[in-house]
Design a protein around this nucleic acid. Structure first.
Lengths: 134, 134
DNA sequence: ACTTTAATATGTAATGATTTCAATATAACA
DNA sequence: TGTTATATTGAAATCATTACATATTAAAGT
């Protein structure tokens, strides 16, 4: 059984992926990670990227975001925060605000709520300026 | 150019899809819609389901949700509300609460925010009871 | 009712992200 | 240094969704 504490075997590929993610606020996709790590490890495979992401997810070291409708995005910051995505270019930024998000019993319909995430949609400064082109 | 007001041609297939969606709070996937409508219209194609959903989206008559990491889900209720998903069985229920979700200028980083959506994660009553099986 | 026409339905093929699989390689630890 | 469980790789498979070409039809006007 997987657990957060379980040690993970370190490999150069994993180290490179972890290093790329460390402090990264760009919310990269698997492909972004692959392309970046590939510069240093040309032989790395997509499967390794996905495997490593799964391993990190299992250990709560990375957060898989579904906010982008085209692909999954990954966030190494697993502390509670929220996101704002540009609906045009899909750029994502962090929102560190502590919203009051309590759901009254009767609204929760018997669910045991364990997580909450606010998604904001809008246009980034760049896309906001070029609304009518592209 | 598409617009919310633009009339859409009505066909039996579309009528069936719309009827299925009307008042539907199950947040169906495209496949759910396809399987349901197929009972009455065995010849309907998946493409028609997706085309119709696109048409309805363009007219803001349906909301495409990315909350389920496996597939897109559709909600005919386009009035602002939020969602709670069971992380095990992916059942989704509506949360009608008016949270205060204002983002201060400096947090918005120049984005023009146009939408907001709170996603809650948890276990539904049924899955909560069977945590350790399956 | 009949025509016209743009919009829609269909089936099939293509796409793109993600997963599976079998064979090979290697980190960790005795 | 040898053993072994775990990771890496590349190729193929899967699954949701989209694109495309052809046939059909709703809608609007005659």
């Amino acid at each position: 059984m997987e657990s957060k504490a379980k040690k993970m075997k370190m490999t150069p590929q994993r180290a490179a992926i972890i290093k790329y993610l460390e402090g990264n606020t760009s919310h990269p996709s698997a492909e972004d990670i692959f392309e970046s790590v590939r510069k240093k490890y040309p032989m790395i495979s997509f499967t390794t990227v996905y495997n490593t992401l799964q391993t990190l997810k299992d250990r709560d070291r990375v957060w898989e975001l579904n906010i982008d409708d085209e692909r999954k995005r990954y966030d190494p910051n697993v502390k509670l925060h929220h996101h704002l995505i540009c609906t045009r270019c899909k750029n994502i930024v962090d929102i560190f605000m502590d919203f009051q998000l309590d759901v009254p019993e009767e609204e929760a319909q018997g669910y045991m709520i364990s997580g909450r995430h606010v998604e904001f949609y809008g246009l980034c400064p760049k896309c906001g300026k070029t609304k009518n082109r592209g």
